[in-house]
Simulated assay, not measured.
Amino acid sequence: MRYCGSFMKLLAIETTAPVGSLAFVRDGELVRDWPLPTEKRSAATLAAELQRALRAIAWAPKGIQLVAVSIGPGSFTGVRIGLVTAKVFAYAVGARLLGVNSLDAVVENIPDSYSPLIAIADAQRGEITAKVFEWDSANGWQTREQVALVRPEDLVNMLPSEETFWFTGPGLYKYREILGNQSRVVPEAFWNPTAVGVAKVAWKRFLDGQSDDLWTLKPIYYRPSYAEEKRLSR
């Protein structure tokens, strides 16, 4: 991965998928892709792993100018842990902050031969959230349509019959059989968001002059968590 002409250090955090990761980019080059442990994750364990990674690559925290983080859809706990860590770190070192949709991060690593492409995430209770992408030769993957909440079988019925769509995203682990046969599913290696994908999306947005407000950036949730719904129903 190369970001031409940049001398900025970028930290990317991805914790929405079962296998999280960190990515470190310097002077336009990927310095390290750092997988996170798969055991139970918390803000404290993520912070400790981030410190270990920084020591391993000999980076000073204050040398990082941009922090990118996946903000969902995905695991409620994972999204919150990643976003809190990114905000605290960015505030502490004075870095800019960018939130990235995890489905955008998924498709960023997928070859253009899989266009048009639908990335899905499990939204629980028999529903998914989905984004439809198509490849643009000048700008890469572009969002064509977004579906907030839908049953997977209804999504299949909504698709135009004259087009052949490919499927990707972590929602395939649960709904693969409903959404498509083997010929319409990208290789499993491309199903999950990665910190490298987060970094790629964030860099494009940064070059367009975008950044997010540290105090107002929120996770992408399409429904409250079970715990929140239970609390609100009291």
Rank of each mutant, 00 (worst) to 15 (best):
R205V: 02
K200Q: 14
L179E: 03
D213F: 00
Y173R: 13
L207F: 01
G180F: 11
W215D: 01
A189I: 14
V198C: 08
S183E: 14
N181L: 05
T194D: 05
L172A: 06
K204D: 06
V185G: 01
Q182P: 00
L172C: 05
D212W: 03
V185E: 05
A189H: 10
S183F: 06
V201A: 06
L214P: 00
V186E: 03
D213A: 03
T194S: 15
D212S: 04
P187W: 04
K204I: 13
D212V: 01
V196F: 07
G180V: 12
G209T: 05
E177H: 14
G180P: 05
K200S: 12
W203R: 02
G209R: 06
W191G: 02
G197V: 08
N181W: 01
A195Q: 11
R184Q: 15
W191Y: 14
D213Q: 04
Y173C: 03
K174W: 00
W203I: 04
A189K: 15
P187F: 12
P193E: 11
I178A: 12
Q210S: 05
E177R: 13
N192P: 00
P193S: 10
L172T: 04
G197T: 04
D208N: 13
T194H: 04
K200D: 09
G197R: 06
E188F: 03
